[in-house]
Design a protein around this nucleic acid. Structure first.
Length: 877
RNA sequence: GCGAAAGUGGCGAAAUGGCAGACGCGCGGCGCUUAGGACGCCGUCCCGAAAGGGGUGGGGGUUCGAGUCCCCCCUUUCGCACCA
């Protein structure tokens, strides 16, 4: 009989709810600890086993910190604006509000079922007008600081979704099979680039995984170089270029402009006009992705125009090509084929000259190319005012930048890859912009007192197809008047992207019901920054950079007290599922996995027969239908052997695990424990329902050492002095569990508790004090079981606010230690000795050892290395 | 292509430069059971009867000593992808 987890878990969840055990005081003499999960999007697909991973981890930390005497803020809420609910509405006509409410109810139930210690009085929902009122209010702050503006920009338009997408969102949608094309539209932009430098520098202040910081640095993409002007021949125009290698200017033999560059028309000669126009048109229709994809073959067209290289006066041809991006730098580049691979490729294809200016290059396809380092050569002006010959690159850069600056030809410059944030979406289900648009093209923010600007109910959720949101179809909402002037106005029909709500939700948790301001400053000072923030790595450059940006704006406004919102960040690894599959050809015949090749075709992975080259049908067998024979997975019907693959859980692979089923069979505590026992929190790992049995058995064993068959306290639990050995094991366990929780190494903490229980249950008597200590160690991991056993031990109140056990360092060490004896680094014996023997004693012990002597026969001892309490290594020849 | 991380039993995984494989799954044996389950005990890296030897993707190096540090290669995963 397993322990009665169902009854226990229900009992304590009811208790916590009724007593509001986890309600957090705003102000407390205790030190504060703010531990936050990335709040979920409540999808119709319900919770999957990946969600509880991070939630359990933060819950363990929250419960541990409470036991350590901290005032803990641990809230949960819903990031509920977003596409899926709206797409569902388009299909069924059901208001996204209703879908969202249902999904939230399911998520809340599933999360509560896991016994997570959230303060539910602080629950928030980004679609609640009382919440998005403040999202709108913060937008107004951005607007008033000139950080929000309307612009006609080339956007990523997705026809299937009927909306534009941020650059960052494009790859994800392409993966899903949608198409994305370029289109120029009037859009709200947020000036995140104004914060590029601070977003970059302040990464040094936070305790985040290095890879995430690196991803953000790459995303911001700072580079240092120079801007310089090339005079256009037969014209007063100048072409300004940005380069990180001004030192290579003497090697610049042609220039390339982006097809969209404003000077293209002026430069183009009549003879080239048709070709240029055609190329521009072609480029315009391509998406960024298509441009990048066709990168293997460079394309471009000569404009017919020439510019002058400012250092040697040479006339160099000006081309256009789509490998130059309009949106980076100045949209124009000087090309140095002897140094730059892309320029070299272009020069080679179109027969443009290559001038050698770097010593020691390698010969590639007939030209001399130096890809890194080297000394400059052939780099001096005719008038002798500048020579870079013989200089190393950094010196040459400095020298020529100064020379150009003196003559007004250029200046040092910094560039970022980061672009301004495209902030509008042509959707219904998002925060409306609190802005009035007038006939004359001007616009005006609403007054804060008029917020929230509520979403109206809609008859239809279909995108209009014109690039306007469904809101445009609701004239009684769209058409309005400016309350100050009575002037006719239209409302903005775009809405904010899903990221808006998550940019500041961690602040709302601090003061969720305040209707005077988004967060009381005193409370903000009390709680910020978030001490530990846990979530998936997929938000590395999206949510996490947007939220940092908003936070810095709020900081500049004096509305928050910290420059960074999230002090310590941790990314949990994804939980994968095993999938089992087999292949069939078009005739329905089986094709063995060895004969199958997977290829990426039009952004989708497909299977092909290596022999015939034909595309194959892939059949996935749900894990619980797989027949096992001699540890090999077989097809339930045909009995052929199946290929095993570990992959993201998804319906199509049949490898989704539902937490409800797991909790039903093993209970929430076992589910929590297994998720933590699987392996290191930050690692990607496969779910195996079989393996949960191990932690389930452990919990049962814990139950049985505390409780007898009649569910009364076990008779072996007595007031007794514990034997020294057990006492030591307990103190080692306290030490390990404490240190492991601090480092988020829950898997090894659980191992240690298993070791303790495995040892304890052999003992003739279970000393009561020890039992009370252990249950407190277990309580953050398996809180329901711990509460129940704590009560059985005679306590009346929840275990939540008891004191965390402390250990005596002296008791974590044994009197006797095993000394490993090595000869030339190889183990030849192990002996037990008293701890604390001197080096001399250990040396003698080793040299006197029979086996050691045997090994040393005929050899001469060269050296003896002693590691106290551990090892002696005798080196001999 | 560039960047980062990782490769350890049949499987999930442990191991401040110092006993490789803790803990768990699975598997084998035994006990308890009419039986099964549950539970308990023992065993479980490889070769070898043993003594002993070998073993952390491959190759080299540093060190008294390397899974751990350094270099090269292979594989996998993730991120970026014409950013001048």
């Amino acid at each position: 009989m397993p322990y009665p987890f169902k009854q226990i878990e229900k009992k304590w969840q009811d208790y916590w709810e009724a007593k509001k055990t986890f309600r957090t005081e705003d102000f407390s003499p205790k030190p504060k600890y703010y531990v936050l999960d990335m709040f979920p999007y409540p999808s119709a697909a319900r919770l999957h086993v990946g969600h509880p991973e991070g939630y359990t981890a933060t819950d363990i930390v929250a419960r541990y910190k409470r036991l350590r005497g901290f005032n803990v803020l641990h809230p949960m809420g819903w990031d509920a604006f977003g596409l899926p609910a709206e797409q569902y509405a388009v299909k069924t006509g059901v208001h996204p509000k209703i879908t969202t409410e249902q999904n939230v109810a399911t998520f809340r139930r599933q999360i509560k079922m896991l016994g997570l210690s959230y303060d539910w009085d602080r629950e928030i929902n980004t679609t609640d007008p009382d919440y998005y009122k403040w999202s709108q209010w913060i937008f107004l702050q951005l607007y008033n600081r000139g950080l929000a503006y309307l612009a006609d920009v080339p956007v990523n338009w997705c026809p299937e979704l009927g909306t534009v997408l941020a650059d960052e969102e494009v790859p994800e949608q392409i993966d899903k099979g949608y198409t994305v094309v370029k289109r120029t539209m009037r859009q709200w932009m947020l000036r995140i680039t104004a914060y590029a430098e601070r977003l970059l520098n302040d990464l040094d202040e936070v305790d985040w995984p290095e890879n995430i910081k690196e991803m953000q640095r790459n995303w911001i993409g700072k580079s240092e170089g120079a801007e310089l002007d090339f005079a256009v021949r037969n014209s007063d125009e100048k072409i300004r270029v940005y380069t990180t290698r001004p030192d290579t200017l003497f090697g610049a033999t042609f220039m390339v402009l982006a097809p969209e560059h404003p000077l293209v028309e002026r430069l183009t000669t009549p003879a080239q006009a048709d070709a240029v126009k055609a190329y521009q048109e072609e480029a315009r229709l391509k998406s960024d992705l298509e441009r990048a994809e066709l990168s293997k073959q460079k394309t471009g067209v000569f404009t017919g125009g020439y510019a002058t290289n400012p250092v040697n006066g040479e006339a160099i041809p000006v081309w256009i090509a789509d490998y130059v991006l309009a949106s980076y730098g100045t949209g124009a580049i000087m090309c140095v084929p002897c140094n730059d691979d892309r320029d070299y490729e272009f020069a080679e294809k179109f027969g443009l000259p290559v001038t050698e200016i770097l010593a020691g290059g390698e010969v590639v396809s007939g030209g001399r190319v130096q890809r890194s380092g080297g000394q400059l050569m052939n780099s001096a002006t005719a008038d002798g005012t500048l020579s870079l010959d013989g200089l190393e690159v950094p010196d040459a850069k400095r020298k020529i930048t100064a020379w150009l600056a003196e003559r007004g030809l250029g200046k040092a410059a910094i560039n970022y890859k980061l672009r301004d944030w495209l902030f509008s979406r042509q959707r219904y289900w998002g925060e409306p912009f609190p802005v009035l648009l007038f006939e004359d093209g001007t616009h005006q923010p609403m007054d804060a007192s008029e917020l929230p600007l509520r979403l109206p109910d809609a008859q239809s959720y279909k995108p209009t197809g014109t690039g306007e949101s469904p809101l445009a179809g609701i004239p009684e909402w769209v058409d309005t008047t400016d309350p100050r002037t009575g002037r006719a106005a239209r409302r903005e029909t775009n809405t904010m992207p899903q990221w808006a709500g998550s940019c500041w939700y961690y602040l709302r948790f601090i003061d969720p019901h305040n209707d005077e301001m988004f967060c009381d400053p005193e409370k903000e000072k009390q709680w910020m920054p978030v001490d530990l923030y846990v979530g998936g790595a997929e938000h590395a450059v999206l949510h996490l950079i947007y939220a940092r940006f908003w936070h810095k704006v709020l900081f500049d406004l004096g509305l928050v007290s910290t420059t960074e919102p999230f002090q310590r960040l941790f990314n949990q690894g994804m939980i994968l599922g095993y999938a089992y599959r087999c292949y069939r050809n078009s005739a329905g015949e089986r094709v063995p996995p060895a004969q199958v090749e997977w290829r990426v075709e039009k952004q989708a992975e497909k299977a092909y027969d290596k022999v015939t080259g034909a595309e194959l049908k892939v059949e996935y067998v749900p894990p619980d239908e797989v027949v096992w024979e001699n540890e090999r997975p077989l097809h339930p019907v045909t009995h052929e052997e199946l290929e095993v693959k570990m992959d993201k859980m998804s319906k199509s692979l049949g490898n989704v695990v539902n937490p409800d089923d797991i909790v039903e069979r093993y209970g929430a505590d076992a589910m929590r424990l297994y998720e933590m026992f699987m392996g290191p929190l930050d690692q990607v790992k496969p779910w195996s329902t079989k393996n949960i049995e191990g932690v389930f058995r452990f919990l049962n064993r814990v139950w049985r050492v505390y409780v007898d068959e009649d569910e009364r306290l076990h008779s072996k639990i007595q007031e007794a002095e514990p034997p020294l050995e057990l006492q030591r094991l307990l103190h080692k366990t306290i030490k390990k569990v404490t240190e492991d929780i601090e480092a988020l190494r829950f898997n090894t903490a659980i191992s240690q508790m298993m070791i303790f229980i495995n040892e304890l249950h052999h003992a003739p008597v279970y000393p009561r004090g020890m039992m009370e200590t252990f249950i407190r160690l277990l309580s953050p991991f398996a809180p329901h079981l711990a509460e129940e056993l704590w009560q059985k031990l005679g306590h009346e109140k929840t275990i939540t606010y008891e004191a965390w056990p402390t250990f005596d360092p002296a008791l974590t060490l044994d009197d006797e230690v095993t000394i490993v004896l090595q000869v030339n680094g190889k183990i030849c014996d192990k002996v037990t000795a008293a701890r604390g023997l001197s080096e001399d004693e250990l040396r003698n012990l080793a040299l006197g050892n029979e086996k050691v002597q045997g090994r040393l026969e005929g050899k001469q001892v060269v050296m003896v290395k002693v590691v106290p309490d551990k090892l002696v290594n005798v080196a001999a020849k």
